[in-house]
């Protein structure tokens, strides 16, 4: 079943800005779907329309087959949203914020408390339940918004830049949490600036630019489109010259660092053999940039 179907969605703001130019996309139930794009591309507008914070100009949006024009309240019950910016009352207690949200979805106080405990424990916030939200750290506030988005057990969870501004350790922890959620069958849509995050988590990826979907495909198919890749090699001894190799471009960054760009058609063994032949011993190697990032720049700038 399709969790989300968008057809010909347009949005023109009163200021005249055309944020969306008829985008269409489909998210299957159980997908971990990434919506990527530069600032102002239309990601937040799209999410705003799905969650009713922004009114569409034209087009259709269906949540698990329910058209938002026919029965938006029924569609909303199936969605949980974690916005980009903090949007809870900083003066309220953590437990109250989460339970109130459950109440807005029709859960009794008793049901809300059970569900709130489940997610606050899973997100490591149970001990902070009686603390006012303003006293939480940035990472805790992010986790609070995730608990709040999940408390009514939505079938589709939409996260708008969920790990913006959180440290690496916490980000990894959130990735694990989201992967488990998706593993349990929950459909997740993620917008992110961290392309590493999309590459790590998402099975399907759409790239949006200037209000249009540039590409919407599986991650593997997407990465397959990359025809070259750049690596950084650290050598054991100083290197002053490298003999050229067909199809490969070498750059000596400093005495013990080489950068090379090679097509996917070429094997790494060929490179290493070529270097070894000229007495260059490679100690370590890494991708220069995230692969998805390269493709993203290529598609967005096209």
């Amino acid at each position: 079943m399709d969790a989300l179907t968008i057809g010909g969605l347009t949005k023109q703001y009163r200021s005249g800005v055309q944020a969306l130019n008829g985008i269409s996309l489909c998210v299957k139930e159980g997908d971990f779907y990434g919506l990527l794009g530069p600032n102002g591309a239309g990601k937040t507008t799209t999410i705003g329309i799905i969650t009713s914070l922004i009114t569409k100009t034209s087009g259709t949006v269906k949540i698990f087959g329910i058209d938002i024009d026919d029965d938006f309240p029924a569609a909303k019950k199936l969605i949980g949203v974690v916005p980009q910016e903090y949007n809870f009352s900083i003066f309220e207690k953590v437990i109250d914020i989460v339970c109130q949200q459950a109440g807005y979805y029709g859960m009794s106080r008793a049901e809300a408390l059970v569900s709130a405990e489940k997610y606050l424990r899973r997100l490591g916030l149970w001990d902070k339940r009686q603390v006012a939200a303003r006293e939480l750290s940035g990472g805790m506030k992010r986790r609070l918004m995730i608990a709040r988005g999940l408390v009514h057990e939505p079938r589709l969870l939409i996260l708008d830049e969920p790990t913006a501004g959180v440290d690496v350790e916490l980000r990894r922890g959130m990735w694990d949490f989201l992967e488990k959620l998706n593993g349990d069958g929950r459909t997740i849509i993620l917008t992110t600036h961290y392309l590493e995050e999309a590459e790590q988590l998402c099975e399907r990826i759409a790239i949006i630019a200037h209000g249009e979907i540039v590409i919407d495909t599986g991650k593997r198919e997407l990465l397959r489109r990359l025809d070259t890749e750049t690596f950084v090699l650290d050598t054991r001894a100083p290197v002053h010259t490298i003999r050229p190799l067909d199809l490969v471009s070498f750059t000596i960054v400093d005495e013990t660092t080489i950068e090379l760009t090679m097509p996917h058609t070429l094997s790494l063994n060929t490179i290493f053999a070529h270097l070894a032949e000229h007495g260059i011993i490679v100690e370590s190697m890494r991708n220069k940039t995230n692969r998805l990032e390269e493709l993203f720049m290529e598609l967005v700038e096209a």
Partner: peptide, 18 residues
Amino acid sequence: FSAKFQRNVEELLVSPTP
């Protein structure tokens, strides 16, 4: 107004609350 200013009115708007 405070709910609008702090944006926590969005908690209500995204929910099915009539």
